[in-house]
């Protein structure tokens, strides 16, 4: 076998083994999308119930809570970037970080200082590589977020929110994540988490992507009796509401991540197929050229022999 043929055969082999890996990752991602979407669905009754309760308290009582009152001047804003831990997901991380950069630029142009919080290794690396300070980062659960992790993040954000700005606290909190619409449509977007703009359940439900039965009868709230008091109920509800918003963002982001990974791996598999095809063609051409050359050599040799024996 000729040297050229050997080179092509080697390339085909290595592309085939890469293709196998891409295909496996594609299948794994595809099965995980379903799981992520199911988890997102499972969490929605809780967040719907919370949204409704928060709206009910806020709409009927004139309770002023630190989490809902707009500060007079906003000097520092926190941005929580919810990104992936691993790559191999196409432009998923890049699109998300672009959205985050856009938000940060917007906040800076309004004269606000930005404190960064990140979820996922990719977002963390992006900012540390550029020498930007990260207030706090969490890694290791971008694919399987849990309610506990969401609470941990919520607590850290609340703590920084309730700290005075002079002591390093923030006046408002934004969250940047990729909203999962369908496995082909995932939109990076940002949302203000705090101070809470308490809207009616319908709008809140729509923004968190829940279509639920509770929504339909949402508009009129009955006169609630509060146990023990409206303030205490609000005190208990709001942090949970924030945790649940963070959890739903994390879950949506994890579904988007898997969907992006599946799409990226599908493309990679297709490209590997194309490459294998091209290399097979080239290897065949090389083989034919070799055979042609061998034939020419044999015929030429025979001619030369015949000519020399005729000369005798």
């Amino acid at each position: 076998m000729g040297a050229q043929q050997r080179v092509f055969k080697q390339k085909i082999r290595s592309t085939q083994s890469l293709r196998k890996i891409f295909k496996a990752m594609e299948l794994i991602a595809a099965s995980r999308i379903q799981k992520a979407v199911a988890r997102s669905k499972a969490a929605s009754p809780y967040s719907t119930a919370l949204t409704r309760a928060v709206s009910a308290v806020a709409s009927e009582s004139n309770v002023d809570h630190v989490l809902t009152s707009e500060p007079e001047t906003i000097t520092r804003a926190a941005v929580l970037v919810v990104g992936p831990d691993r790559g191999f997901a196409g432009a998923y991380a890049a699109n998300l970080l672009r959205e985050a950069e856009e938000l940060i630029r917007l906040l800076r142009s309004e004269g606000k200082d930005v404190a960064l919080f990140t979820v996922g290794g990719k977002a963390e690396n992006y900012y540390t590589f550029r020498g930007r300070a990260i207030e706090k980062s969490w890694t290791g659960f971008s694919e399987t977020p849990t309610a506990e992790k969401a609470r941990e993040i919520g607590e850290a954000l609340l703590e920084s929110f309730t700290t005075e700005t002079a002591d390093g606290g923030v006046d408002e909190i934004y969250i940047v994540f990729t909203k999962f619409v369908s496995s082909v449509k995932k939109d990076p977007e940002y949302r203000r988490l705090l101070p809470l703009a308490v809207v009616d359940a319908e709008a809140a439900g729509a923004t968190t992507g829940q279509a639920d039965a509770l929504k339909s009868d949402a508009p009129a709230f009955p006169l609630y009796e509060f146990e023990p008091s409206a303030e205490a109920v609000l005190d208990a509800l709001l942090p949970r509401y924030i945790d649940s918003r963070i959890l739903s963002a994390l879950l949506s982001a994890s579904a988007s991540e898997q969907a992006s990974r599946q799409a990226a791996m599908k493309t990679a598999t297709d490209n590997a197929d194309d490459l294998i095809k091209t290399y097979t063609r080239l290897a065949n051409t090389a083989r034919q050229a070799e055979i042609t050359q061998e034939l020419t050599e044999i015929v030429g040799g025979a001619d030369a022999l015949a000519a020399s024996s005729a000369g005798d």
């Binding site: 009796e225 509060f226 109920v233």
Partner: peptide
Amino acid sequence: LAGHEPVLGV
């Protein structure tokens, strides 16, 4: 019980 007044409690 059924017919209870609306309540929001912790």
